[in-house]
Design a protein around this nucleic acid. Structure first.
Length: 275
DNA sequence: AGTAGGACCTGGTGGC
DNA sequence: TGCCACCAGGTCCTAC
């Protein structure tokens, strides 16, 4: 499940290989659900063919491919999406939705469960994109401070877990796995009301979010089920998880990790370490 | 406006 | 062995 560290890893792996390259040809899966929120396949093909890739970067969990001369392709990988390069001679695997022919290589977007999506923004409309303009600060953005975090959570009556999963509320880029890990590192129960955090706790949470994500990026993400950061490679953060998927196991403090549900999402915490 | 909960989707898994 | 219910969760939609 691609969250911020996985998306960051994908971008940094692909960046050098595709920046400056021209999209020679575009193939789109017939009736692809990933295009449900953007222009039709014919228009998309026309908009991309012959264009040079100017930059590839990330905002929250979104991948943004800037095109030379304006315009951008915004990609969200949902739960099971993957973007990677293959040889030109390689066949597209099952569930390939998009294939760009680049000089010497092919760029694939593969997504079995089609929770992901692709949106094309015309020149000058990139900043106006509805999704991106509403996104909460990126955890590594200067504007993401402990004061801003406290401020955004203040007065909220929803569970902290739900607040951190909301990409528009306090911080963007966190998903189910990293929210649990960040709350554990901060020593705060994810079931608490978001507005109940004091300044000291918000400071701990702020630091935990940056530390956990930095470490996960160094590990090239977490591999659980279908996520791969590139073809035939997997992240190593799985081994560093402290609570996610560890229910019934012993925490280093001696207590047993518990699993509960918050807003219908599996939620893991240590009753000893997290108040 | 804030909050809650269901829908979407399909591969993998475990029970029978 | 085969079948099937169930689970995973990011985001969007609707209801209150």
């Amino acid at each position: 499940m691609p969250e911020l560290p996985e998306v960051e890893t994908i971008c940094s792996c692909l960046r050098d290989d595709i920046t400056g390259e021209t999209i020679k040809e575009v193939w789109i899966k017939k009736g692809s659900r990933l295009l449900r929120d953007t222009v039709g396949p014919r228009a998309l093909k026309k908009a991309l063919t012959g264009r040079k890739i100017k930059a590839l970067f990330r905002r929250g969990k979104y991948i943004i491919m800037d095109l030379e001369g304006g315009g951008a392709l915004i990609i969200h990988l949902g739960m099971t999406g993957a973007v990677y390069l293959v040889d030109k001679s390689d066949k597209s695997p099952e569930h390939t939705h998009l294939r760009f022919e680049l000089p010497g290589k092919s760029l694939l977007l593969v997504d079995p469960r089609t929770f992901g999506k692709v949106v094309f923004c015309k020149a000058g409309e990139e900043r106006a994109n509805v999704v991106l303009s509403r996104l909460a600060p990126d955890p590594f953005d200067e504007s993401f401070t402990k004061e801003a975090l406290l401020d955004r959570l203040r007065g909220r009556t929803l569970p902290l877990k739900a607040a951190l999963l909301d990409q528009q509320l306090a911080v963007s880029g966190l998903g189910n796995i990293y929210v649990d890990e960040c709350c554990f590192r901060a020593g705060i129960r994810p079931t608490r009301y978001a507005g109940s955090l004091d300044a000291e706790e918000a400071g701990r949470l702020h630091r935990a979010i940056r530390e956990v994500l930095e470490e996960a990026i160094r590990c090239k993400g977490t591999t659980i089920r279908d996520y791969r950061w590139a073809e035939n490679s997997s992240g190593e953060f799985l081994e560093k998880l402290k609570v996610y998927g560890k229910e019934g196991q012993q925490c280093s403090c001696g207590r047993t990790i518990e699993k509960t549900r918050v807003r219908d999402r599996s939620t893991h915490f240590c009753p000893g370490c997290q108040k």
